[in-house]
Nucleic acid binder design. Structure first.
Lengths: 351, 351
DNA sequence: AGTTTTTATGCAAACGTTTGCCTTAAACCT
DNA sequence: AGGTTTAAGGCAAACGTTTGCATAAAAACT
């Protein structure tokens, strides 16, 4: 029975009440049961602690043990619906293991990110899940020397930092095939920001998938966005549609670009998929409700976070354990209504 | 210039390097400039600390001062798009003031919520923003005695806990008027879960708005959901449509219920707004993209969080300062396409 | 010049734990 | 019965800060 206690009761109070030394209380309350305490004194202490409403002070414990039982979760922006499920996945593992999460948003600002790392380090987090890294990120590589880090959804190339990412290559390949099968021969790519690993991987995958089909995938059919936003999707779609009017399909590096592209289409009186087919990546929440229903590559957001957290947990609890450097999560195609045969009924050929 | 340091450098190291006492270092580095230090020693120490890559250990400081410079943010579910903007609003204030945020999801589970409160207290948070409270919540009232709390979006009735909420009454009133003006005389309410303050306020507002118009607002035209989810919206819409076939409009207690209601409509071959007008509440992100475009009550999510944080900050820094017990944020109607005149062209009269 | 005030810094305790080591007493030997 | 092991729990230091108080030196009085 916890009494509603206003003033904090410490281990010392419990010791006094049970007439033992504080160290005995500490051991009695410690989960890793110290063998050398008699069962009766343990139960007596536990009962008293409970009765008195004792709550351990993890700040003090953290100072002594330098383990705060907290982790940092670094994401670009919590309002981007891609990330909350990942965060929940992370927490599903870490919360059960007793960790609390400090969540920070970088807004894709490197300077901000660096500052936030300091914030996390000053708080002595035991580990970090980072879903906001850029493809080459000095700061995080430095940090990785002093605290376990796992990146989620993105990776830092050649850093050796464990990463859990998606099978971008396969997702893009399958999607290109879908478009090809529908008859498209002029496919454009709305690529993501140049410095993100997802953008890079998907662009490479695009080229790798187009080539065997004898389709061009050079810079002419690619528009590189500055940001994974709807606005950038619109801008890039406009750009590409102007530059390459014969394009009949746009493969977008993520859903938000795709949404923006659809909007741009409508802006010039065209429609998706009648005039231009458009595909996305991620299958973010609510996407199914937005017309015309984007055909997209579904990633396992929650599981991605979950597995990243499992790896981090392993690194935190067994520092010497070997963990996979890169874990690739499977993806699948979700067919909705944004792919149709090319306009004017024929599969146009390029050049 | 921060050297890339692997091992933690403490105040003691800086003291040794600069040949002063640790207390002097502490004072030199403290932001509230201790007047009684000579400018030169301060700069010397600051320079050395910088050079050595000193990072304060907030865990240790927290133990000493019992101020951890961290706050808890309690929400039902981060994947519910209502909450991320609120969280960003909170952080926009707190981050600037040096606070880090521990974010927890209650999943609307009271037991879970209680456990998470303990998690936060054990970590010694300096304050809590709670957007997940139920209308009567013993636990939080207890907690409020030992740590500053501000509730956001919801309130705990009669608790005296400062709350920042929306002008539910006005939002519902305006919306009822819109429906009335469109010709609706049989308006149903999809109410939110009974134990949430928002549900209660909106239901009361519904009754208060309907009465002067001479329209019925009793239990017959109300369906109470168990949860603010799309599924519950569907279920309640089905229920109400069966029970009150003459209903031509459904005012929903939030957007998610409304989305579910629209889905239910389509399930039975009806459409919104042609057959039934539907309205929402909150104007959550992406709502504008979902057909037919829900006419809804827009709340200021970000500002709600921002102001809640400002109040919390005040309570944390000046414990005796008086803060407003209830702050009501203005709302506005966003007109989209989900209201039309009642079906069959006439404004049907009830009973 | 002697006294008082001010300025600049050092001293040491305290915050609440955890944990390696030590002590006591009981239990076990032969 | 004397010696040795084992069990149970106490002791005290340590984690890295902050801060009230003390002190020494310098500055300002009269």
């Amino acid at each position: 029975m916890h009494k509603a206690t206003k003033k904090k009761v410490t281990i010392k109070d419990v010791a006094r009440a049970t007439d033992v030394h504080v160290s005995t209380v500490s051991r009695a309350l410690s989960p890793n049961g110290r063998a050398s305490l008699s069962a009766e004194v343990v139960t007596k202490i536990r009962a008293a602690a409970d009765e008195m409403g004792y709550r351990p002070n993890r700040v003090a414990a953290g100072l002594r043990t330098s383990r705060t039982m907290s982790v940092g979760i670094v994401i670009p922006d919590i309002t981007n619906t891609l990330f909350p499920p990942i965060v929940r996945g992370v927490e599903s593992v870490l919360e059960g293991a007793g960790y609390a999460s400090i969540l920070v948003n970088t807004d894709n600002d490197a300077e901000r990110e660096a500052r936030l790392f300091d914030v996390l380090m000053e708080r002595g987090v035991d580990g970090i899940i980072d879903a906001a890294v850029t493809n080459s990120d000095d700061k995080i590589v430095n940090m990785a020397a002093s605290v376990p880090i796992v990146t989620a959804n993105r990776l830092v190339e050649g850093s050796g930092i464990p990463a859990v990412i998606n099978d971008d290559a396969n997702g893009v390949r399958m999607m290109v095939q879908r478009l090809y099968d529908a008859g498209h021969r002029n496919i454009g790519l709305l690529a993501g920001p140049a410095l993100l690993s997802t953008s890079i991987a998907r662009r490479q995958a695009f080229e790798a998938a187009m080539h065997p089909l004898g389709l061009p995938a050079n810079a002419d059919v690619v528009a590189v966005s500055d940001n994974y936003t709807e606005d950038e999707g619109s801008r890039c779609a406009e750009y590409l549609l102007d530059k390459q009017p014969e394009v009949t399909a746009l493969l977008c590096s993520n859903d938000r670009l795709a949404i923006g592209a659809i909007d741009a289409l409508q802006g010039r009186g065209l429609s998706c998929p009648a005039d231009v087919s458009i595909t996305g990546f991620n299958d973010i929440p609510f996407l199914d409700l937005i017309p015309p229903g984007l055909t997209t590559v579904q990633i396992l957001q929650f599981d991605l976070g979950r597995i990243a957290a499992e790896i981090l947990l392993k690194r935190m609890t067994e520092p010497d354990a070997r963990v996979p450097e890169t874990t690739i999560m499977p993806v699948s195609i979700i067919e909705r209504g944004s792919i149709a045969p090319p306009r004017n009924g024929r599969a146009s050929t390029q050049s």
